[in-house]
Design a protein around this nucleic acid. Sequence first.
DNA 1: AATATAATAT
DNA 2: AATATTATAT
Length: 298
Amino acid sequence: MREDESNWFSKWEEQLPSPEDLMPLTQTLITPDLAIAFDIRSPHNLHSPSLQHHQQPPPISTPSSQPNSGEFDSPELGGGGAGDEPARTLKRPRLVWTPQLHKRFVDAVAHLGIKNAVPKTIMQLMSVDGLTRENVASHLQKYRLYLKRMQGLSSGSGNGSGGDPATDHLFASSPVPAHFLHQGRPNSDHYLPYVPVAALQQQHHHQQMAAAAVVAGHHHPQLQPRYGQIGHFGSPRNGQFEHPFLNRQSHSHSHSHSQQPIHRVGTPIHNSVPSSYVDDLESANGRKVLTLFPTGDD
DNA sequence: AATATAATAT
DNA sequence: AATATTATAT
């Protein structure tokens, strides 16, 4: 069908890092529960996925309203019997799947193959700190639906909408590997090792992209969202496909492959991933939005 | 709609 | 028991 697909696909395949290369990335789990519990979102450079700080309105107790004006909600212990383990009760902020994150996701799934692509494995391959299995599972569920929908569309009668509606903005932001669409090859485990077709390479020098768009709120005049250079990323506003970024993170690491979740509280975390900085904004609803802007080739 | 969480199933 | 998958809730 489309030849362009073969092109980007081969390129895309080329850049697939072997699991060993991919593994030693950043499984810097600093006990997310703890971190989040204490609101220690690493003032320095904790590279974590974008999180939306959801609300935290305790529907119970504390009639004396705590107008925690400001962005800090100190875990007030008070109240007599309480004052213990906040970590157990606190909820993690909602994960925001940025195109970058999603790309990592897709890559991971691609490398594993649809068959082995299960939440845990995907999560491990992605090596994104703070990313939980449930996060991936949830996303995977939706992604599968998306794939299914696409299959149905391509196979069925002509589709009027020549592409992906804005409904799947996220998913549309990263190319869907071919084998995803036709599922079902329970026989040979090894699917296409690589495509020997070396076509031209279209490289884009993208330096940074914004990872989240935030609604300009009219609440809480305290926080002034500072839109630096927040642009649009994978919004196929005018085009169907964003260009298939071929990128990967260069993981230069030692040979130590012990990537067990070693929680070291009090130890500076080494961030081996491309630089990234965080930006917090506020949505119209008043939800705090912690957005991480990965800058690099991701 | 996007993501989380609960409910099942393997 | 752990994880995957599906259903449901926010």
